[in-house]
Nucleic acid binder design. Structure first.
Lengths: 394, 394
DNA sequence: CTAATATGCTCGTATCACGAGGATAAGGTG
DNA sequence: CACCTTATCCTCGTGATACGAGCATATTAG
């Protein structure tokens, strides 16, 4: 994403300023004194940096509410003329967008259903949203960050099964605007959101898994996703945990995918594969309260889920595992089955302190928030800061 | 490992010097001009840094062989009074150690068989080696880096099945010496060696897998292993790819481990589990040339291996996969079975350019070299450089 | 009002890096 | 052999960032 430094100074210049902004969007509403403490800044340096960032329209300060003795400090806030990113989340039924400031707050959140799923139509709508945002924010808009429910490979969308898309060129969204476009898988970005502002903020290494149609996710290390060589990592649903006779639409056999979503529930219930596995799964989960067979099917799937997650805990050794999508419902509906399978699948080593499995905090918003976070990471990077400075005072 | 910076300057001071040393041990025998080009140093800065490092006994320069026009440059070499690390590889049958200089060269490589496998005896022998090295190198010895064929958790050895050890305190190796001890899993460190100086140097994201008793490995990103929250990541053998009825010594069920080593071969041959799965596997592999049943067993195991590796390629999206231990032999003895299973297990997405599976370059030396590399990374870190400077001129 | 406390600000100093221009050591050429 | 070309090394003035000490400032506690 970030271009390699051309000068040595690029590696150190704006480094602390960049860290200040990163800390700001990790702890919104942080005071200047707390920031200085967090980053081990001397008071002199804190003065210098805030002055610099104020001059650059990157933050403002307001008086902090007083607490106890001592000279009152200030609260750091995004500057009304500061840079923003447009975050977009492209999903099966609809798409959403929001404008994020350096502090991480989402503004102008909007939500639109697809009229048709034709790629051209959808992309044109997103493009209009980019143009509107450019019109409203002008040069303040510094990047577009896109979450897509599909497979990314070398910054291209290769396939989006739920949208029915294959290899769509997303370049039109920012063509001719000079805006960098950041592209990410929706599950990956939801994992980033959990790690940075969600249920896994305390974790250094966190695994996020999301069950929708199949199962995807990401490993994050200190809030940074492990994306692989081409950005296609995290396809946990395509591990061969299942029956080798089953052929998966992905091309492989025995994929975990087939056992943990609506398709898996249908097979346990002796029904034919559902057209929409997600809503089918929700129905079965609702029925499970009163229907023994539904409950048994859910328990079987929860067992498969727990066993697989335990295997992933063995290979990744995470601090924490967050579950999104249908995961929480599956797990809570068949809590015993899940917990037994999970514990049973762990290596003895991990049994004393199994990595906690917790529900994702962001729910449906994860991908959008993750896209915003990645976009903000980009605009607060040293190179982007240097660009902003150049644009401001050439 | 490295203590958190106490001052802001700690994050930038010695940064370039540290990068110079890192580059030196990534490209042994590099010239000063090439280094300057690599790190985008201006000639003035190159002069300044080399002078600084020369004064600090961190490198020396000798005239480079002349090639073409221009003022001749110099070759950067480790200083005869510079810091070293002791790398130790603790294995089932024996242990080895070597002293590494900043350039990455191994000196004084030694090799000793265990007389007994009593932890106390083995550790005492290692401790003697540390003391001898301290005696010979004095203050130049800056760290001990230990590779162990066992599971690491929070810098403790929790279990070493092949050695028959459980939860052994390795602190005695450096107790009272003030030397930092770096501890790593052997497969993890072998992966580091492949990524840094072996078959995966060109890869950004590389997966290393090693088949011995079971299968272990590591994912490396830019030469840095993904070690998880407690350093226990990489237990790929404990993914539930296998038959859920099989109970694994690790505590879980259906572990891949049980199917890809000598135990898997024995099961296919209808024999009872071998006492030493590794030498058993070597025997079967030798027999396979003439013995149809052995060949079929190898093919079955190679298929299991290929399918599993494909699944890992799906989740990690690596540039390259390196195979060590028995892996190359298994794969080449049943090349067709392996290749078919590997291709068949990949998502369609990866089929156009499957991540190449190549044999590890370091063979038996990987763990020792990996331990040396991790040790050198430590002594060339900014904090350790600052310590070295303090020790040299207080 | 005064003491205690926490924070912000100023200024001199140190480190690191840049860039321009000159110096140096080789090969190539007539 | 004198001289040009080329690639590198070296020096020096300048600028950016960070530190540390000391002082200034704003609030609470008593």
């Amino acid at each position: 994403m970030a271009s390699p430094p051309r000068h040595r100074t690029d590696t150190t210049r704006w480094l602390t300023a960049s860290q200040v902004l990163a800390t700001l969007h990790r702890h919104p509403g942080i005071t200047r004194a707390a920031m200085a403490h967090e980053l081990q800044l001397t008071s002199g340096l804190a003065t210098e940096i805030t002055a610099r960032l104020r001059d650059l329209c990157l933050l403002t300060e307001t008086r902090a509410p007083v607490r106890g003795r001592g000279r009152p400090t200030t609260v750091l806030q995004p500057h009304p003329e500061g840079p923003v990113v447009l975050a977009v989340d492209l999903r099966q039924e609809d798409w959403r967008h929001a404008v994020a400031t350096v502090e991480g707050q989402l503004h102008d959140v909007r939500h639109q259903s697809h009229r048709t799923r034709q790629p051209a139509t959808v992309l044109a709508a997103v493009r209009r949203s980019v143009d509107e945002t450019r019109h409203r924010y002008g040069h303040r808009l510094r990047a577009v960050s896109l979450a897509v429910a599909g497979t990314i490979h070398d910054n291209h969308l290769v396939q989006a099964a739920t949208l029915g898309w294959r290899s769509v060129d997303l370049g039109t969204i920012t063509a001719g605007t000079n805006l960098p476009m950041l592209l990410g898988n929706d599950a990956t970005l939801a994992g980033v959101a959990e790690a940075r502002t969600g249920a896994a903020t305390a974790a250094g290494t966190a695994l996020h898994l999301i069950v929708e149609v199949g199962i995807g996710g990401t490993l994050t290390i200190a809030g940074v996703p492990v994306t692989g060589a081409h950005g296609a990592a995290g396809e946990y649903g395509h591990l061969p945990f299942g029956d080798r006779e089953q052929r998966c639409p992905c091309g492989a056999r025995g994929c975990w995918d087939l056992d943990v979503d609506g398709r898996g529930l249908a097979r346990h219930l002796g029904e034919s594969p559902p057209a929409d596995p997600r809503s089918y799964a929700r129905q079965v989960l609702e029925r499970a309260a009163g229907d023994l067979r539904a409950r048994q099917a859910v328990a079987a799937v929860a067992t498969t889920l727990g066993t697989g997650i335990a295997g992933l805990a063995n290979i990744h050794d995470p601090d924490l595992i967050t579950l999104g999508g249908l995961g929480p419902a599956l797990r809570h509906t068949a809590a015993e089955a899940f917990d037994n399978a999970y514990t049973d699948g762990l290596m003895t080593l991990h049994r004393a302190h199994p990595p906690p499995v917790v529900d994702a905090a962001h729910g449906d918003d994860g991908s959008l928030r993750g896209a915003a976070i990645v976009g903000l990471d980009h605009i607060t990077s040293r190179t982007a800061l240097a660009d902003w400075v150049r644009a401001l005072a050439p």
